[in-house]
């Protein structure tokens, strides 16, 4: 039986080698979007999580083991973003190509400078991540480094198509440079606007476009809002002139809406991941969507 499978595999290799596409699995749709941009028609990309999910708490479905078993490359954010579900899946996938530190295991946080790196690890401060804030996918300034990491890894894994990946990267960077200028222009009214966010998931977006994050609905990262915290936050935010309250679409609306109403701010729902809104189908569209949502929130 096994010999039969070996034979099948050999046949598939012989006949399909020329057309074999790199099988890429991404932990999140944002990384899948970048992988598609860089890989083009030379790769087949699957995302494990959906953009509507909470990236920290994705269910470790057994089918993911099957998907990872077949993968030539795995792209993850790292920095503990997927720590709650991905590591055992990777170790159980029986796939040496994507084991930690294998060439096919691509960790995007490695090439980036992360915000909020704690100087002290102390969980009394909530669920702080040792490597820093892992929601770096919302700063388009990071796309270039992320895409470069992906292109480099693809070229290493699939040397025959290296020029293709390099060309795609170049095209991607040109497109990105154009969009960055557009977005900066678009985001001018956002500069200096004070905002409250639900979780510390919009810090990169804020830093990029000059929003000032005044505070969070969560008293500490990952800790559910408490009445005491909300009651202190509201008067402070009111006197500071906070204009917007940002939350992801999957959060409960009640508390953020209450906070927004109490301080006379607008509640803005911003997806934090690609696919979090039907219009946000790629990394670029996600940034565009969030910026437009924020601008709309500022309109009288």
């Amino acid at each position: 039986m096994k010999q039969f499978f070996c034979l099948l595999a050999a046949l598939a290799l012989l006949t399909g080698a020329a057309h074999a596409r790199l099988n890429v699995v991404a932990s999140l749709p944002d990384f899948a979007s970048l992988a598609e941009d860089i890989g083009g028609d030379k790769v087949k990309v699957t995302s494990l999580a959906k953009g509507t999910e909470d990236a920290h708490f994705v269910d470790a479905k057994p089918s993911f083991i099957r998907v990872l078993n077949q993968a030539d490359a795995l792209i993850e954010g790292g920095a503990e973003l997927e720590q709650g579900w991905l590591p055992p899946l990777v170790l159980n996938a029986r796939n040496p190509r994507i084991l930690p530190n294998a060439p096919g295991h691509i960790v995007l946080a490695r090439g980036l400078k992360l915000l909020d790196v704690p100087t002290k690890l102390d969980r009394s401060q909530g669920d702080v991540h040792a490597a820093g804030n892992p929601h770096f996918n919302l700063d388009p300034g990071n796309f270039q480094a992320m895409a470069a990491t992906i292109a480099e890894a693809f070229a290493r894994l699939d040397a025959a198509n290296a020029p293709h990946y390099a060309a795609n990267l170049k095209r991607f960077n040109e497109r990105l440079a154009g969009r960055l200028v557009e977005w900066d222009k678009l985001a001018v009214p956002l500069r200096g606007v004070k905002v409250i966010t639900y979780h510390k998931s919009f810090d990169y977006l804020a830093a990029r476009f000059g929003l000032e994050v005044f505070g969070q609905i969560e008293p500490k990262p990952g800790i559910e809002p408490t009445p005491t915290h909300i009651n202190t936050l509201i008067p402070q935010a009111k006197s500071a002139g906070v204009k917007l309250v940002l939350m992801e679409p999957n959060r409960a609306r009640k508390t953020p809406q209450f906070v927004a109403d109490s301080i006379g701010a607008r509640l803005v729902v911003c997806p934090g991941l690609v696919g979090g809104a039907p219009e946000a189908k790629s990394c670029f569209e996600l940034i565009e969507f969030d910026l437009r949502a924020l601008l709309k929130g500022l309109q009288p």
Binding site: F57, D59, E248, P249, N250
Partner: peptide
């Protein structure tokens, strides 16, 4: 059998 909607928050 497990049900978890695709728009869960914190699982």
């Amino acid at each position: 059998w497990k049900w978890k909607p695709a728009n869960h928050t914190k699982g």
